[in-house]
Write a protein that binds this DNA or RNA. Structure first.
Lengths: 228, 228
DNA sequence: TTCATAGTTCGATCGTAACCGAAGCATCGC
DNA sequence: GCGATGCTTCGGTTACGATCGAACTATGAA
């Protein structure tokens, strides 16, 4: 009855609703303070503090002190992937948080998944990149083509510097709302940063959703058309 | 504070040690009865019954009545992947079930992951297939080459029939003991079945480990050499 | 029919962990 | 120094869920 690593521990860590909410919020990518996390968890700061301590002890979170604040973030991308994959799994089984309902449409349109773009726009972007021959999909994996590399240079993304990081360039990440893949990895991050820098889109305060400006919307749709 | 699917529910399902043990056991691929699962969970049949009911309600398990037995299996491959990915994650963080220890060496050498080969031998097989040019690794994805298809035919595996299934042919699955990828998908399953049919290896009664016969060991190592 | 085995349901116990109030540190601004 | 803010620790309460004994249902064997 005892073989292999202990799933129960991390399962239990994620299994508490308050903790799950905090983790989901942190999947938004930005660091949050203990008080903010208490808010999203719907609990007092005291309880949040103990929860956060447990999550940190479990290796899911790291904290950074800054003045009298403590900023919490997911420990690394692996945690984010685990959370998103569990979300995808849960969505597939109909484990939705509140009844059926239309949910936040903004969240389904475009949201942040750790540090890259997800939702309808995220999926559309990857589809378009594949259709245009910039990215090749082989099995579950993704690879950037030479054409893609030069195309990206035009947008203002230098793939060379991205390659120098140890993080994989292209990764596919299952989108829980669309149930299809979107682009993760350092390239996914770079693309999102690019949109934010250009002012095409901005992050919202307390949500994971990403709001595109009218101009940004036009540019995005022009850049990543859906093939008819 | 409420966006997206409910991770907490499935987290909590996996979060109980008894349930986690049962799920881990079922990752071995074979259907187990309620009594057997009570054994691996270290609990009485009554409690096991309630646990199994919860897991089934959560969509993680399915049961099949056969005479007076009830055979439980994982609901589908997605559940198996979730469990294995959580194992990989847990192993990476040092969440091991019992202290450090050498653990079951047999389990690390070769074991079943749902329906394909994992452990040292599983990783070695994939490495060798890639080195020989039978399988191409692109990013995280895997694709069978033409050479691979003809090579497999020699062993007695007809890829054509495998393709007809909706299940992907090649999938990479992260190995928790080796921390590297092994081959899953319908091809992974076919290869393991092939070894079992030929009598090269056999499954053990109550464990996930796979035992190779001396002859099978020889054949396997000959077929999948490690490039020096 | 009767007995045995496999499994579920009921009822009650018990432990753990989530929770909050209050007090205790730490850091900032003044 | 002082108070205010952000967060943690302590103590005690509470509630949920895991657990098992016992009773009940179902299938199979004799």
């Amino acid at each position: 009855m005892k073989e292999g690593p202990d799933i129960a521990q991390i399962g239990a860590l994620i299994g508490d609703p308050a903790r799950a909410n905090m983790l989901a919020a942190l999947t938004g990518g930005r660091a949050l303070t203990a008080t903010e996390l208490a808010g999203v968890g719907g609990i007092t700061v005291q309880t949040a503090s103990t929860h956060l301590a447990k999550l940190e002890a479990g290796g899911l979170l790291t904290q950074r002190k800054q003045g009298r604040h403590r900023y919490f973030t997911l420990a690394d991308e692996a945690v984010a992937r685990l959370i998103e994959s569990m979300m995808g799994f849960a969505a597939g089984r109909g484990h939705l948080r509140h009844r059926p309902g239309p949910k936040e449409p903004a969240l389904r349109k475009a949201r942040i998944c750790y540090d890259h773009l997800a939702g309808d726009y995220g999926v559309r972007m990857l589809d378009s990149l594949i259709a245009s021959g910039s990215i090749e999909a082989v099995g579950e994996g993704l690879a950037l083509t030479e054409k893609g590399e030069s195309d990206l240079k035009c947008i203002g993304i230098d793939v060379g510097t991205l390659r120098s990081s140890r993080r994989p360039l292209c990764r596919s990440c299952l989108d829980w709302s669309e149930r299809r893949a979107h682009l993760a990895g350092s390239l996914g991050k770079a693309l999102l940063s690019n949109f934010l820098d250009k002012g095409w889109a901005r992050r919202t305060a307390e949500s994971r959703s990403v709001i595109f400006s009218p101009e940004g919307d036009r540019q995005f749709l022009r850049l990543f058309p859906v093939d008819a």
